[in-house]
Nucleic acid binder design. Sequence first.
DNA 1: TATGCGATATTCT
DNA 2: GAATATCGCATAG
Length: 201
Amino acid sequence: MSKKALRRLKRAELPKATVALARYLIGKTLVHDLGRVRLAGRIVETEAYLVGDAAAHSFRGETPRNRALFLERGHAYVYFIYGNHFMLNVSAGSHGSGEGVLLRAAEPLQGIERMQTLRGTDVLRDLARGPGRLAEAFAINRKLDGADFCGDGVLWLGSALRPTGTIGVSVRIGITKEAHRPLRFYERGGVFVSGTKALRG
DNA sequence: TATGCGATATTCT
DNA sequence: GAATATCGCATAG
């Protein structure tokens, strides 16, 4: 009961509504297969970016950068920001809507040694706590932009390996527009969740 | 806890 | 050409 088998999630299982998907992904598994090493983590924090949301990259329409955000739900949208960091999103909503879910933090489960190398630290809690760290720990790069999480590729979403705790809701982190909207979801009390103490309770 | 800064792709004007 | 960005780290208090 406590130990379940890891299985790929099918697109049909992903909720069509973006906010529902952001909640749904909490507790699920993020996997990136690198040859003989499998990087896997339990997603503990996400944020939703919606249509008509000035904080969403799709707000001003489709561009070469945000193109992947407009794909059918369940595709990867990867971009580079602040001169140093990649971010990993899951395209969401109806096809062409430009909605997405940002993966903000995960609890490392498998391939931890490789993650430590990629991150340059051995502190488990700091491996994927925060979106830039998560992308670095999971070896996310521009080549994965547009990848299908629901195909048979190396980057995919897996079922939950243990029961999911209570889900908390807060405002999103690090944005200046639409900063009041409660679109951040996280596992309450989780030590692998980013932000200050108040943002983890 | 709270600043302050790096380092750069992309978009806007 | 300039502004801005879904951040992380170091350092100070």
